[in-house]
């Protein structure tokens, strides 16, 4: 991944965080104050459409959709779910993240786990476990990209990242419904 992209990604994260801070400032405080912890966390979840993660994911979704459309324009039709997953892990991953994934596993019931041991969006963090929490927000955009690409190929899925040691990351892809 080239340098300007990393910088753009950093700026997107900053923009998302700033916007979230602004949105938080006009949450109805008087309403939230009187509530117990469980209820107020529910209210926060209801307001989550304005948080940084959602914002980044939706930018990624759009990008992934467009990238996948451009990439498979000249390819023959990819029909099965497994073929689509292979396409995502190979051609798509190479063209977007500059390398192949290191591992793809599935339970054959609609759950796929994509593992990348050296994920480009995380390489600027120092390796190890210290910054796992801070790195989380840098995975929202890639998640959106993967979900957008799957959507372009006709699969509705839920993509969640997990990482316990930087810079490796696992994307869990739960396939919900196949669009036909």
């Amino acid at each position: 991944m080239s340098l300007p992209f990393d910088l753009l990604h950093m700026e997107m994260v900053r923009y998302g965080k700033e916007k979230e801070a602004v949105a938080r400032a006009d949450y109805p405080k008087e309403v939230l104050e009187g509530l117990d912890k469980a209820t107020s966390s529910l209210v926060y979840k209801a307001l989550a459409s304005r948080n940084a993660e959602t914002n980044l994911e939706s930018i990624g979704l759009r990008t992934g959709f467009l990238l996948a459309e451009r990439l498979c324009r000249d390819l023959p039709r990819i029909s099965t779910e497994l073929e689509i997953m292979k396409f995502i892990c190979k051609e798509f991953w190479i063209s977007v993240f500059g390398k192949q994934v290191d591992n793809l596993r599935t339970n054959h019931q609609g759950v796929y786990v994509v593992q990348d041991n050296r994920f480009p969006c995380l390489t600027s963090f120092s390796d190890g476990t210290q910054y796992v929490k801070d790195a989380a927000i840098y995975l929202c955009f890639p998640c959106g990209v993967v979900r957008g690409a799957l959507q372009a190929l006709g699969i509705q899925a839920l993509v969640t990242p997990t990482t316990d040691q930087l810079p490796s990351v696992k994307f869990h892809i739960h396939i919900k419904t196949k669009l036909t």
Binding site: S2, F5, M12, S95
Partner: peptide
């Protein structure tokens, strides 16, 4: 080439 496409499309989405 793709990296410039990625950049351009990401910027557009932003």
């Amino acid at each position: 080439k793709m990296s410039s496409e990625l950049f351009a499309l990401t910027y557009g989405s932003l």
